[in-house]
Simulated assay, not measured.
Amino acid sequence: TERNQDYVLAAQLCGSSTTRIIWRHMIPSFTSYIIVDTLINFPYVILAETSLSFLGLGLTEPVNSLGVLLQKAQDPDIQQNMVWQFFPVLVFVFLIMAFVFIGDALRDAADPYSEKK
């Protein structure tokens, strides 16, 4: 859809090469959308890795991961004596919420159709 825009046609009519049109006109127009989409999808990647490691299908014991730490926190001895081991749960929740809120704010900022108040 970007290559059919008027500014691309204007650049072609001015004699710009295809490489120049791509690097100077098209890439800057959709770079913000790629960044926003990456930030919005990043919590899902963290959630997938954590859940697979928690279930024992992802990273295993010698590697420190949120899923491994959450799996260790299920031990009854840790639940009774070392409550501080539940800190990874708070980190996980805050990390996911931070990326969701930042991605949502960037999506709203990059939306060309939103009403400016």
Rank of each mutant, 00 (worst) to 15 (best):
F42K: 01
I22R: 08
R20K: 12
T18Q: 13
I35A: 15
T31A: 15
S29A: 15
C14D: 15
Y44C: 03
I46V: 15
I40S: 01
I22Q: 13
Y44R: 07
S29K: 11
I46Q: 06
G15H: 03
N41V: 01
S29F: 09
I27Y: 04
D37W: 00
Y33R: 01
R20P: 01
S32V: 12
D37A: 13
M26P: 02
I21Y: 01
F30V: 11
S29P: 06
P28F: 04
Y33A: 14
L13W: 03
F30G: 12
S17R: 03
I35E: 03
N41W: 02
S16N: 12
I21P: 08
T18P: 04
I40A: 01
T31G: 14
C14G: 04
G15A: 02
N41T: 03
S29E: 11
S32G: 15
G15P: 05
T19W: 13
N41S: 12
T31W: 05
D37E: 11
H25V: 03
I21S: 08
I27C: 09
Y44Q: 09
V36N: 08
G15E: 06
V36D: 05
R20I: 04
F42N: 09
V36A: 03
S16H: 04
L39P: 07
C14Q: 07
I46Y: 05
F42L: 15
F42A: 11
T31R: 11
N41E: 04
R24L: 10
T38V: 14
C14Y: 09
P43H: 01
S29G: 08
I40Q: 05
Y33N: 06
M26Q: 10
I46G: 05
T19V: 09
S32H: 11
I27P: 00
C14N: 11
C14W: 01
V45A: 14
I34H: 02
